[in-house]
Design a protein around this nucleic acid. Sequence first.
DNA 1: AAGCAAATCCAAAGCGCTTTGGGAAATTTG
DNA 2: CAAATTTCCCAAAGCGCTTTGGATTTGCTT
Lengths: 343, 343
Amino acid sequence: MNLKELSKNLGLSQTTVSRALNGYPEVSAATRKRVEQAAKEFNYHPSTRAKGLATGRALAIGHVIPVSTQHEMVNPVFGDFIAGAGETYSRNGYEMILSIVDDMNEEQIYRGLKSRRAVDGVIVHGPRIDDPRIALLTKLGLPFAVHGQVTRCDTPYTLLDVNNHEAFEQATKYLLDLGHRRIALVNGLESMDFAYRRRSGYEAALHACDIAIDPALMCSGEMTEVIGYENAQALLQTADAPTAFLCSSLISAMGVRRAIQECGLTMGKDVSVITHDDVLSYLQNGGDTPIFTATRSSVRTAGRRLAEVLLESIKNPSLPPQRVILECEFVVGQSTGPAPRKD
Amino acid sequence: MNLKELSKNLGLSQTTVSRALNGYPEVSAATRKRVEQAAKEFNYHPSTRAKGLATGRALAIGHVIPVSTQHEMVNPVFGDFIAGAGETYSRNGYEMILSIVDDMNEEQIYRGLKSRRAVDGVIVHGPRIDDPRIALLTKLGLPFAVHGQVTRCDTPYTLLDVNNHEAFEQATKYLLDLGHRRIALVNGLESMDFAYRRRSGYEAALHACDIAIDPALMCSGEMTEVIGYENAQALLQTADAPTAFLCSSLISAMGVRRAIQECGLTMGKDVSVITHDDVLSYLQNGGDTPIFTATRSSVRTAGRRLAEVLLESIKNPSLPPQRVILECEFVVGQSTGPAPRKD
DNA sequence: AAGCAAATCCAAAGCGCTTTGGGAAATTTG
DNA sequence: CAAATTTCCCAAAGCGCTTTGGATTTGCTT
């Protein structure tokens, strides 16, 4: 069923039917109702492609997911983020188109999306330090919104981020207040902006307490269970082992916990652990009471909100770039306790 | 830059330029080269929407991701599957469009995709027992391919699945051969087809050894770490506790491992664990040597293959429905050992 | 050199929608 | 009651591409 057939069926012109369906005022209430009824009855939906051609808008948002060539790693956060953004899109009649891309061909992809006029805007995932995409997209004139921030980037751009610095500063302080002095940081890849900010929060807290920063206590890498485990195990076997760990993800925290247990230690007593918790649907931090003390911020909510912000800025292009910073909730679980006394 | 401008630039007709770019034979090799050069130079890409309108094909595949309303759960497997499928699409000039949908509005979404002519086909995720989507999609005449199988469904359809029955039968047999007699099954939601098949494999192996099936040893639910933990903990505290666990996912297996450790037992010695491993990029089963004994099958490869199969069947609609069954690799890790002797 | 097929290219129609620029009918106004 | 609005609807153009049905040129034959 297309417009032509539908309008023939109704004995109206395509113009009128189109207008009735799109809420234009030049149509009487009676005919509008009649048209809407018929559209529902025949299950008529305008062809996205034709509509896009005619209006010049794609009614679609692109998500370009970088998959690092070396690690073949898909960010585990991605599923939930997409789910959140998807909610926003379907509420607003937008479609989400996804491009999986190894980081070599990124620029190609963005240029393609632009010149094929496939999308009205894009969401930038996994911003890195000095990320070249901001400059590229502004140059292309393709509206975009970033999930995260780009460290050294002077031109303003629309973004949504968790306050990573603040969260990790607060977490570190909490551990310091409990008497911990040797606090390890199990961070994400240092090329990622969020990891950079978390480290700076961690360092700021130590600094404020006049505690020297020990590079041996900081590690960074993909946030997997195994890597968390290996790092923690290595650290726990050193002479001056840390009494607390600060993790960038629940998954690595689980690895850390395993290392602690295997050393015959008890988490929350001998060794404390705080982790960032993205509230992934398949990775809850315990049931009613949280297991890990955590800095919590739902990545799904982030997806929903960021999509809203992007849609808004597309609808209203004169709007200045938006900056949404979400504060984490600090939840105390069973994984932290006072630093053990040295005997 | 559009076709008109490009052809004016070249002093050729739109026809010729279009044909040159699309590999039609009615163009001399010389002009083709010239056209291709110019297209590259001006970074010309045909508008997807216009092309779609003209050809009647969308050059896009839809992925409809069900997010259960009660659990708000995004299948953790999904990210990697999508990454695999995405590789295939970009190699073939297709786009992937994603719809996140709570299971109430599923039918609406599929009908919409069809009548808006937004996609050339869809991938069906998370098939359930007696899933109504097969019937719906065949009725709609929308090409589709299923990731998994639908238990009672007589009409043939294109699918790709892991041989779940075989894998879990083999795993159970392996445990039986090690002398285990009380084997617990920590399964996914029983409404999912894969969970059903895994249980049937488990039961078949027990049956073959004349071991009665004890419902108390079987649990099913979302495959989270916490649920795995809770189930295992409860089971380990019973009088006649299992000596082995069979898990449907690495995540629940990690929960099971935690329960084992907390009971002061050693995995691989006191209690054995086998899990299915989807080879998710952020959830490796150990480093060089696997931690868990596992039935292994990469979900990313599954995504790549299934997308290929779907594209093939779209290109060649007369093809009969394809059935691709992937066999799991059985890898022996450190989580299994002979059943402990009763003292 | 005339004749014919093959090789190249082009003009124009059409895909399904929106939107401009009117026109006819209904309503209000003086 | 004629004139001026307002209301409601329509024909046709246009979005950027593909594809049909020629037209023209070139290369071979005889």
